[in-house]
Amino acid sequence: MQQITLLLTSLPDGILLGFVYGVAAMGLTLIWGVMNVINLAHGPIIALGMFGTFFLFIRLGINPYLGLVPIAIAGLLLGVVIYFTAVHRVINAPHLSSLLATFSVNMIIIGLATAALTTSPYNVDFSLGGFKLGSATILGTRLVAALIAILVTGALYLFLYRTRPGKFIRAVTNNRAAAELMGVPSTRILALSFGLGTMLAAVSGALIATFFPFNILSGGGYELKSFVIGVLGGLGNPIGALIGGLILGVLEGIIPTFMETSWVPVIEFGLFVVILLVRPKGLFGAKK
C-alpha cells in the first residue's frame, strides 16, 4: 500500500519530466537521423538554454515562457554556426571524426562558460504554484513545461511533414545523394537540421531551468538521457522521441518505489546497452 502511494506521488512527476526529456532527445535524434552525426555538444547547449532562461528572467525580467522565443532563435543560429565551423567538413568522414569534432565544440563551450560562469549552481526563482492530485503535488512549472513540450513536438511534426524545408529534411534523411540529385540544397538543409537540433536542446534546457537548479555541466546528464531516449524511440522521429522520453520519465517514476533512487542510472544505462544490442535502430519507427 505504501508503495502504491509512493508510486502515485512520483509517477506524475516522472511523466511530466519525460515530456521535457523528449524535447531534448528530439534535438539529438533529429541531427543523428538526418546526417548520421551524434552531437556530443548536445549537453552544453542544453546548459546554455538553462542560462538563457536565467539571464532573461533574472537580469531582464522577461517571463521564462516568453524568453523561449529568443532562446530558440539563438539556439538555431548557434547550431548553424557550429555546423559550418565544426561539422560540415567531417560530415562524410568516419564516425570518429564527427564525434570528436562535436566533442571539441563541447569542450570549447564548457571551457568558456566555466571561465565566465564558474561551476557553482544557479537557480531561477520562478514558481507557478502547484496543486494536489491525490497524494501527489503537481508543480505548475512542470505542468506548463510538459504542455510546451507537447506543443513543440506538434510544431516540429507539422514542420517536417507539411512545409517545404521540412520535406527537404526528410528527403535528406532518407537518402542524401538522391535528394541532391532531385535539386534539394543539401548543405543548407543539413545546416538547418543541425540548427533545429540545437534549438530543441536549448529550449529543453530553458524549460528545465524553471524547476531545477543547474550549472554549465548540468547538460551532460540530459545528453546521456537523450542517447537512451534516442535508442528507445528511433532516429529522426519526433513522436518516437516524445514516447521514448515518456518511457524514461515513467521509469524514473517507478524505479524509486522498489529500490534506491541512486539505482535509476544503472537501470537506465543497462537498458540503453541492451536495446542497442537488440534493436539498434530503436524500438519504434525504425527506418533506414
Binding site: 546521456l224 541512486s262 535509476v264 544503472v266 537506465e268 544505462f269 540503453f272 546497452v273 544490442l277 539498434p280
Partner: peptide, 23 residues
C-alpha cells in the same frame, strides 16, 4: 555493433558502471 552504435554502447557501459559503483 558497428560504427557509432559501438561508440554509444561503450559510453552506456561506462555510465552504467559508474552508477553501479555508486551503489
Amino acid at each position: 555493433l558497428r560504427g557509432a552504435y559501438f561508440a554509444l554502447a561503450t559510453i552506456g557501459i561506462n555510465e552504467a558502471m559508474k552508477a553501479f559503483a555508486n551503489n
